[in-house]
Design a protein around this nucleic acid. Structure first.
Lengths: 340, 340
DNA sequence: GACCATCGTCGATACGCATCGATGATCTGC
DNA sequence: GCAGATCATCGATGCGTATCGACGATGGTC
């Protein structure tokens, strides 16, 4: 592997000049620059990351703490990971994976060894054991998700409250007066991520404002629970029933439960779920969705932390950004009576 | 951040002694070791990764090149990623994400900058543009997947040939004489990953050996194609029809197509799919599966590359490891007549 | 008790880059 | 045509660790 010293010799300049050509932190004459660039090209020189990190005290690596939830929602998590990694590259950074099973010690490790300059935490829980540690680390930390106490922390998440509100508002506009929300499955609820509460809060607020009824029913990966929820929903509804099912696993089971009761989405029952556009279109009856925009959340997350890294901010920052959700009508919901 | 020099001063020894305590590469007296360890503890010292990499020429980081396939099979990919990351930790290594959209240049970058000591490539295609680059990089590279020409490369993958063979063998044993394989969806087939061919080859070989008929039918995320495939399968079958659907997206559509034709898995039709045990159990009729064991493939992948890193092997290694697949009977297939 | 091997520790150096102060070269204005 | 300002480049140093050679202390041997 060639070093900057090799490049310097090939170009007939000092090593420091090579460094300045690369960083642009001092003016370099056109002639010298050309010579150096030619030497770099010819030797296929690439700066050594370790040496660079040692000298500059910056690794240009961001640690990404990924959650470990067997099975569930893995596809969604992968979308975050993938977009975060490619966005980081746009800011000339790389992503180091930190698995959740390392716990808070993992954060201390990667920051303490100075493997990375900052951290992104996914799936932040209400009372997350990693938060006290995150607050004392002297590097920028970006949370995806909003803990109970976000003081002194930088957070971003989808606007679940808006999501709940929009779902209820849309179903109400389509003429439904009773709306049933099937909860996320227990595996998610038990994680104490509070987006569940925020979603429900938004839905309840909208219901109150619009004078419609929202009832909350248990979800679950088992069919019995959901079948029971459906029956309770039907019993409580006059007219066309409406369901909101944010959890993707719940949706599949719900669809089957409705089908076996002679209910067809878009005809004599409405369903809104959360799903990516592609997945929604693949359904036999394309699903009306509330898009929680994981890609946009990921992009902004990287942008924010890169700005913090740029600023070299020492003082404890604090901010909270919510990404608007988007509701899309497809065929699984009734059309509003007035064409709205 | 404390340095090893700080630790040395606190313990009243030389910096090099601290280094030897940590590495164990020279004998250290019990007394000195205790003093140093106490100082490390008290200062919460952690070695600087950059300096360590610079001096030792080892980063203890492995680059993981993740595929970029919108939507499809993301959950499965996440399982690879997650298991690879946590297994790497067991070998005291970390994982750096490299996204596929960087292409072959990405490999050159992370290796050239010496950000990582080795690479794992996922979803290797038959004629992968990254392979010629991989061969010339002077670091260990581990492929998950088997290219057309694996010479000079180290590969691991699930044994798809065995998988195809076992599926056919099991269905034949259950009394089916005509077996229909619904192909992966076009998005997968068009990637030219050759596991599709290997699976089909295994199935065909088993069919020939057992004297049963295997027919290949197109899959696809659209219902029309699959519905058509089902009709063609039924037309060609006397007795109870049998389907093999390795693609998860195809499975869902297939299930609906069968249901709408009055066919119930395990009763008057057999289906074997590929899915994780958890997902298989969640189905209304638990799915008999061929498990391609992504977690086991991931673990072995990390093990192999860590051994190569350990060995500091310069010469071009070459190996090919296939992980046996596991077939599990649940309720979606007929039982063999003789209880076998 | 003199000699040599072994053990434990130290000091010095190298790793490759960023960065600071210094220096020579070129230009400005009078 | 000369003092001072600006520009481009160089040399030296430090970042924190691993590692090599050296060296004093200890133990055993005859």
């Amino acid at each position: 592997m060639p070093t900057s010293k090799d490049v310097a010799e090939a170009a007939g300049v000092a090593q420091s000049t090579v460094s300045y050509v690369l960083s642009g932190k001092r003016p370099i004459s056109e002639k010298t620059r050309k010579k150096v660039e030619a030497a770099i090209e010819q030797l296929t020189y690439q700066p050594n990351a370790g040496a660079r990190a040692l000298a500059s005290r910056k690794t240009r690596v961001i640690g990404l703490v990924i959650p470990f939830i067997p099975e569930l929602e893995m596809a969604s998590i992968m979308e975050f990971v993938s977009v975060i990694a490619s966005t980081a590259r746009q800011y000339d950074h790389d992503i180091l994976l930190v698995t959740e099973d390392e716990g808070a010690a993992g954060l201390r490790r990667v920051v303490g060894q100075q493997i990375c300059d900052g951290l992104i935490l996914m799936q932040v829980e209400d009372e997350d054991e990693r938060l006290p540690v995150a607050r004392t680390l002297n590097v920028p930390v970006l949370l995806i998700g909003i803990p109970r106490d976000p003081s002194g922390l930088v957070c971003i998440d989808a606007d679940f409250e808006m999501a709940g509100e929009h779902c209820v508002r849309d179903l109400a506009a389509a003429g439904h007066s009773v709306i049933s929300i099937i909860d996320w499955q227990p595996a998610v609820v038990n994680r104490h991520v509070n987006y569940v509460d925020r979603f429900m809060g938004g839905a309840d607020a909208a219901a109150e404002a619009l004078g419609v009824t929202v009832q909350h029913l248990p979800g679950g990966p088992d069919q019995a629970t959901i079948a029971d929820s459906v029956d309770r929903a039907l019993a409580a509804t006059e007219g066309v029933p409406a369901f909101i099912a944010p959890d993707r696993t719940v949706q599949d089971i719900l669809r089957r439960a409705l089908a076996s009761r002679g209910l067809t989405p878009g005809v004599n029952v409405s369903i809104i779920g959360s799903a990516t556009p592609t997945l929604a279109e693949l359904q036999p009856i394309p699903l009306s969705t509330i898009d929680l925009r994981p890609a946009e959340v990921s992009r902004r997350a990287v942008k924010i932390i890169c700005q913090l890294l740029e600023a070299d901010s020492q003082g404890p920052h604090e901010s909270l950004e919510l990404v608007p959700t988007v509701i899309t009508h497809r065929s699984s919901t009734l059309r509003p009576p007035h064409g709205a």
